[in-house]
């Protein structure tokens, strides 16, 4: 009798879990987070299929700029890039050059967080590496530490662009900013702006959820991360690199 009860309970739990998994099927990522904030059970990650990324396409960059009010100062040395396109060519020149977007890799062992003297850089429970602009003093240690050059200092005063997104605060002069995986969208149950704008090369989701498309694809196809030798465990994976 006890066994039956246990089975029933397990069956109900399974059905409930299946329902939860299927219900948000329309979305690329799972349901919005609970009101108690970021979940430690999740680990957001990205898979970029380099073979589908054409060198002339800047849809992800444009979408990111628009969504997050990322400014340009008409000075290549001081312009801010949350995501940028990089052309790669093997040294022997045998393979064709590939174009891939590079962004913050949201490492599991982020050197930027380790060096931050004010704990402004931090990892959220769900693995997103963020900068708390209220605490950042603009020392730029994190910029030196990041092997992906994913961070930029705001050198000049900024203002909200005319067609800017009022939901994302602009960053004041003297703080370091970088890709946030669009946390404000993640918390609302939406994928990052670059993923939404990309015509099919980017896949985003919860790496801890074995049923998510990204976790399945990572199991199926060979993927790489940039500078795996550093042991930072980056969460942005590349396919076909």
């Amino acid at each position: 009798m006890t066994v039956m009860d246990r089975r029933k309970v397990l069956g109900l739990g399974g059905a409930l879990a299946a329902g939860v998994a299927l219900a948000p099927g329309l979305h690329l990522i799972a349901a919005p987070q609970a009101p108690d904030g970021a979940s430690a059970g999740r680990r957001w990650g990205m898979l970029i299929d380099v073979t589908k990324c054409s060198s002339g396409c800047t849809a992800c960059i444009d979408a990111c700029r628009k969504e997050n009010n990322v400014p340009l100062f008409n000075n290549p040395q001081r312009d801010i890039h949350w995501i940028r396109k990089v052309e790669l060519q093997d040294k022997a020149g045998r393979k064709p050059a590939v174009s891939l977007p590079v962004l913050c890799n949201h490492c599991e062992n982020p050197p930027c967080v380790h060096v931050c003297p004010t704990e402004a850089s931090f990892i959220r429970k769900d693995g997103v590496v963020l900068v708390d602009m209220h605490r950042c003093i603009g020392c730029r240690y994190c910029m030196i530490a990041c092997p992906y050059k994913a961070r930029s200092l705001v050198y000049h005063p900024t203002s909200l662009p005319k067609n800017g997104n009022p939901d994302v605060p602009i960053r004041g002069k003297g703080v370091v900013e970088k890709c946030t995986f669009c946390v404000h969208r993640l918390d609302a149950g939406r994928p990052p702006a670059c993923v939404e704008a990309c015509p099919g090369a980017m896949l985003f989701g919860d790496l801890n959820d074995p049923g998510s498309p990204i976790a399945k694809r990572l199991k199926e196809v060979p993927t790489q991360v940039i500078r795996a030798d550093l042991g930072l465990k980056p969460q942005v994976h590349y396919q076909g690199l």
Binding site: Q33, P35, D36, G37, A38, F122, R124, K125, D126, L130, D132, M133, H134, V183, H184, D187, A188
Partner: peptide, 12 residues
């Protein structure tokens, strides 16, 4: 609430 939002992800 800014601490909660930025660091813990508690929105709205």
């Amino acid at each position: 609430s800014r601490e909660d939002t930025v660091r813990e992800g508690v929105r709205n």
